[in-house]
Design a protein around this nucleic acid. Structure first.
Lengths: 327, 327
DNA sequence: TATTGCGGTGGAAGCGCTTCCATGTGTGGG
DNA sequence: CCCACACATGGAAGCGCTTCCACCGCAATA
């Protein structure tokens, strides 16, 4: 057994012929140090391949140096969705600007305790929860106040940053009505996601006003489910003339399902999505959808936790209709 | 100024009327503890909202408890690409299975030192570098041997897991030739990515054999660049009858650019991609491409580092042609 | 009743690092 | 020539935690 121990600050100090204190000063760049000491220490560092231990350093500096991003839901489905990628990228950007690391976590839906476990103490700079459920959010320990934010629907204690699903849905559905559609179906998101309720409400409201009857099908934000949902819709209500999906990915799936059915879009049936992912403009027909300032939302959430801003307000961001070819 | 200190193990022990040692045993579940002690400690934990400090714990258990994933390149472009998302998901899965955390890092191209900085000591369980450049890889400190792997091209010291770009490209281009295409252009990846060289070589080779002349355009794996590249290709070589892009995202962009130009696909020009992302089957026309076991690659890389497997072999995974409508 | 054994417990050491503080060493001014 | 002052330096404390080890009391055995 070769020893093969990773070098510690002690080793560096000894090799450089200085004290640990001096070595530390040189390495962190804090405090005075003579050029001679500086040289010897840096030489020792490279010679030994020394790398400071982050844990030990964090322990003493008490600098929560990590922004945790927790994505609730099933992992495979979730990272297929460019929406999540955009949230991640933006949050990671904010973190990078402030020189804090990012840690990523996929949390199962059925284990609310996992969120609490994640918030493992003072190593944590902040926690952004994407698409949280309320029960999960309520398990977050107190004393983390102001260090947690939700992208999606929050709770009384946790500030939330979300798109205005109600207004967004309203806009899309009214556009459908305006362009002459009368029998509009909706593919919702996963049932456990509170944000969907608001959207469904808005959909119901518009239909109520215009005398349509709701045609609701459960979705899960995946493309595969969208294709199935399209078939289900056309089977249950063959005279449907528009489908609104609460996710672009699902809408793209709907497009596919309809195509397989020989239904023309937008000739026979109009299709609209939600989110305006990059591919929405690339599909044929190009997808009509509603665009969301995802980057802004994620940036706001990350900034909020990193600044330890208190006050659990819910902020809603506008959703803007983007008319392309599919509706 | 209210004190508002986060509770420590000491606080818990005091509140429970036991020693720190006992409290620790109860909380970690290691070692004996009487039911009475157990109850009192758990009660104190919830009462105080105690959360263990990960840094302190990691410091003493010396359990490298984090799988770092570094993605080299520009962040915005990079997470738009579902390929990266798939790598991340798979690696995160492996990590989750072994109960280690994941940390995500976007590293700039022009700062090779950033990789070394990332490897910050013993908190690190392993490091997977996605799309690394050789110089960057060479900055990784020694003593991390067996804890680093590359998804993409590696170095002598770092094992690498990559798709067989040469064979994959060969397959696609030959398919193009076989279906009667003669004037085949190629949109490459970013120039700094070593993997692209192999693909370009294979492309040149096939063209050389079949008497075609290379028509190379620089790409960057984005869809936007694909659209531009399509226009550039058709301008420089108007008689082009096939375009092969080394990324599906780019190929989708090519499809779009060609559409804008009024060029029919595959009637006038065949288009083929590389990667087989989820959207490849959803585009119209559905994209002909080459499918890659990305999940398998990423899983292998993550497993390799987490197992501290040594031996810097390069493993290549097969790339399989998927013929759809576009070529 | 004297011995063994064992589960439960607290004391204390120490993980690798930063930082306060006291101590040296060299320079300038009085 | 001596004092003051800066600067560089090392000693030591301590961050919050786990874990070794010695210890205690109690039940079971001899």
């Amino acid at each position: 057994m070769t020893a093969e121990r990773t070098a510690t600050l002690d080793d560096v100090a000894r090799a450089a012929g200085v004290s640990r204190a001096t070595a530390s000063r040189v390495i962190t760049g804090q405090g005075p140090a003579s050029p001679r000491a500086r040289d010897r220490v840096t030489a020792a560092v490279t010679a030994l391949g020394y790398v400071p231990d982050a844990s030990a350093r964090a322990l003493v500096t008490r600098t929560g140096t990590r922004l945790a991003i927790a994505v609730i839901g099933h992992s495979a489905a979730v990272l297929d969705d460019p929406y999540v990628g955009r949230v991640l990228t933006s949050a990671a950007h904010v973190a990078a600007e402030r020189e804090v690391g990012v840690s990523l976590h996929w949390l199962p839906l059925d284990d609310p305790g996992s969120l609490a476990r994640l918030a493992d103490g003072r190593g944590l700079g902040g926690l952004v929860v994407v698409n949280p459920t309320r029960p999960a959010l309520e398990t977050v320990p107190r004393g983390l106040r102001g260090r947690v934010a939700a992208v999606g629907v929050g709770t009384r204690d946790v500030p939330s940053f979300d798109v205005d699903n109600r207004a967004g849905t309203d806009g899309v559905v009214r556009h459908l009505v305006r362009t002459g559609r009368q029998r509009i179906a909706m593919v919702t998101g996963p049932s456990w996601l509170p944000c969907c309720d608001r959207a469904v409400e808005a959909y119901r409201q518009v239909l109520h006003e215009t005398g349509g009857e709701p045609r609701l099908v459960q979705g899960d934000f995946t493309a595969a489910r969208g294709a199935d949902a399209a078939i289900e819709v056309m089977k249950r209500w063959p005279d449907t003339d528009a489908v609104f999906a609460l996710s672009d990915l699902t809408a793209l799936g709907v497009l596919d399902g309809l195509h397989a059915l020989g239904v023309r879009v937008p000739g026979d049936v109009a299709v609209a999505g939600f989110d305006d992912i990059a591919f929405a403009g690339l599909s044929r027909p190009a997808l009509t959808t509603s665009t969301h300032p995802v980057e802004e939302i994620a940036t706001a959430a990350a900034t909020s936790v990193l600044d330890r801003r208190d006050g659990a307000r819910a902020t809603f961001y506008p959703s803007t209709l983007v008319v392309r070819d599919s509706a």
